[in-house]
């Protein structure tokens, strides 16, 4: 994988609006953003109601994913270009889903909604309708890119653990990103031995990803050991999808998993080790 295989630029995207077999998909945390204006022809995926199982805390299963993509008019051979707000957090999260279920051609729009808006590129409120398809997932979930809580515990002191939340969340001074209320059930802190590399260090102010050289330097300086597998986590798994994307899809690291249970799960577990403060802590 590389920047070229995983990303498209805003210029490319603008030139390919309406192109055959290219489907733009907007994925947001603030799902009202799409209704206020979207890239022409883009369909919307609601990460909360459409990508999550509505009863259990888990993702939609293979059949639900197939039904979702079919209803959105996305075909197996379409090039899917994902974008969204929050510096592409939820678009990166959706990208990871598309990879979990083996979609062939999926890209992230570099800079997402923010760069698009700051550039003054066109958005429309025009309703989009695409004919339904019969989407068939290539395989069930590819668990080589998904980590569960036991994997996270076993990784302490053994694998690279990357905590991509803000420094205050890592240290335990905040429990959630600062645009959300702070009262939470779980304990504050981080998984012992995790290094702190906030997702934001991988992005420029306009939401685009930093250069390959800058990214390599960032993780090297943080002490990420290239010879080991890596598990990335955050609070609910969306910011860590952004870092998973950087490590796996842009830099091409071979073994990178996203722990989607992340801090809301880990910080609620009984009996697991927790470190507080700015240092990784000991195993």
């Amino acid at each position: 994988m590389s920047r070229e295989s995983a990303l498209v630029t805003a210029d490319w995207a603008e030139q390919n609006i309406g192109a055959d077999n290219v489907v733009f998909v907007e994925v947001d945390e603030d799902t009202a953003a799409y209704d206020g204006g979207h890239i022409a022809g883009a369909v919307k995926i609601n990460w909360k109601t459409e990508l999550q199982d509505q009863v259990r805390r888990d993702f939609v299963n293979k059949e639900q994913f197939e039904a979702l993509l079919s209803s959105k008019g996305i075909g197996n051979d379409d090039k899917v270009v994902l974008y969204g707000g929050n510096n592409n957090w939820f678009a990166a999260y959706a990208y990871w889903y598309f990879k979990l279920y083996g979609h062939g051609d999926v890209k992230l729009l570099d800079g997402g909604r923010k760069k698009w808006e700051l550039d003054g590129r066109p958005l429309t409120k025009e309703e989009v309708s695409r004919s339904a398809t019969t989407y068939v997932a290539v395989h069930d979930q590819d668990l080589s890119i998904r980590a569960f809580r036991d994997d996270a515990v076993k990784a302490i002191g053994v694998l690279n653990l990357v905590d991509v939340r803000s420094p205050d969340e890592f240290a335990g001074r905040l429990l959630a990103p600062a645009h959300l209320p702070q009262e939470q059930a779980q304990r504050p802190g981080h998984i012992p031995t995790a290094v702190s590399v906030p997702w934001s260090k991988a992005a420029n102010e306009d939401g685009t990803f930093k250069s390959d050289d800058d990214l390599r330097e960032l993780y090297a300086a943080a002490g990420l050991d290239d010879s080991k597998a890596t598990i990335a986590y955050c609070r609910i798994g969306e910011r860590s999808s952004h870092t998973w994307f950087v490590l796996k899809e842009i830099l091409g690291h071979s073994d990178v998993r996203n722990y989607d249970g992340s801090w809301t799960e880990y910080g609620s577990l009984v009996g697991v080790p927790v470190a507080v403060g700015d240092e990784p802590g000991n195993a």
Binding site: N86, S166, P167, L174, A176, A178, H179, L180, Q182, P198
Partner: peptide
Amino acid sequence: EFTAEVVTSPAGQFRFFA
């Protein structure tokens, strides 16, 4: 260091929980 980001409302308002 970056902590959070929001988009202002039509009236230019923003809000964080810090």
